[in-house]
């Protein structure tokens, strides 16, 4: 790996190099490096405790790296605050639906609309035609156009997941990170979600953590297999599926 040339290359959206995080001596992520191209769909798989979610936490700034660098379009993210990383164009969906239950679906989407993010901006924010149109458009995309005025707590689990995806989409991020987007969904919801994800991953780079192999095969351009905080294998789904190491630690079970 050659850090100087790779980080200087413009065509990587995300360049993670030598990333390490240690919690009281336990290295949850250990000297990890990987690169994501423009418009690439990257899926991270691996057994429980491999450090997949921690990697997303590190990229979006929730956890601070002990060592290493994360460059997003040549901007170092490791020293930025969470909201600055978001404003650069990195969106993150959490594993459990993370929405504002006491607000309506419309208000949930409106808060995610990328305007008036400062305190004074939020005081002066007007719900104008542009906001309404965009909320409507996103609501249709995530199958919630008829539920805009409902409090979000009354949505089903699957609908909450869709709402959170919608909240990310309204920000139109360049890099979208999804943590198990179809977990806990019914078969019908799963199908609809897969269809939704196919649509929203166009024209942007996406990192997905997923266990559903059928789904992974369906969408992944490349797959990174993690094990004990390190990259075990990387390549096309076909390639990693036939890697004996991967079969042993993950797929074989």
């Amino acid at each position: 790996m050659d850090a100087t040339t790779s980080s200087g290359r413009k065509d990587f959206v995300l360049a993670v190099e030598g990333l390490t995080v240690s919690f009281d001596g336990f290295k949850a992520v250990n000297d990890l490096s990987f690169y994501v191209d423009e418009n690439e769909i990257r899926v991270i798989i691996g057994p429980n405790g491999a450090g997949k979610t921690t990697v997303l936490d590190l990229i979006c700034g929730r956890t601070k790296a002990t060592e290493g660098s994360i460059k997003f379009r040549d901007h170092e993210l490791t020293r930025m605050k969470e909201h600055q990383i978001v404003r650069r164009g990195v969106g993150r969906k959490f594993q459990n639906p993370s929405i504002y239950e006491d607000l309506t679906v419309f208000e949930n989407l409106e808060i995610s609309f990328p305007r008036g993010r400062s305190v004074w901006g939020a005081l002066a924010f007007q719900r104008d035609a542009q906001v309404k149109e965009r909320v409507q458009e996103i609501a249709e995309m995530v199958f919630l156009q008829n539920r805009l005025n409902e409090r979000a707590e009354y949505l089903s689990h699957g609908e909450k997941q869709w709402l959170e995806i919608g909240m990310l989409l309204i920000q139109d991020p360049d890099l979208l990170m999804l943590d198990e987007p179809v977990a806990g969904m019914s078969v019908a919801e799963r199908k609809k979600t897969a269809e939704l994800l196919h649509r929203i991953i166009q024209d942007r780079s996406v990192i997905v953590i997923e266990h559903d192999m059928k789904f992974v095969e369906d969408i992944a351009h490349r797959v990174t297999v993690m094990h004990q905080g390190k990259v075990l294998a990387e390549g096309s789904m076909e390639w990693v599926k036939n890697d004996p190491k991967v079969v042993e630690v993950y797929l074989g079970h």
């Binding site: 929730r62 504002y100 006491d102 008036g116 939020a122």
Partner: peptide, 20 residues
């Protein structure tokens, strides 16, 4: 919107933070 953001912070502080 500030008033609604306050409620959102009470509900899910992290989501507000990761909405910029």
């Amino acid at each position: 919107k500030l008033g609604r953001i306050l409620v959102a912070i009470r509900d899910k502080e992290d989501r507000v933070r990761f909405s910029g």
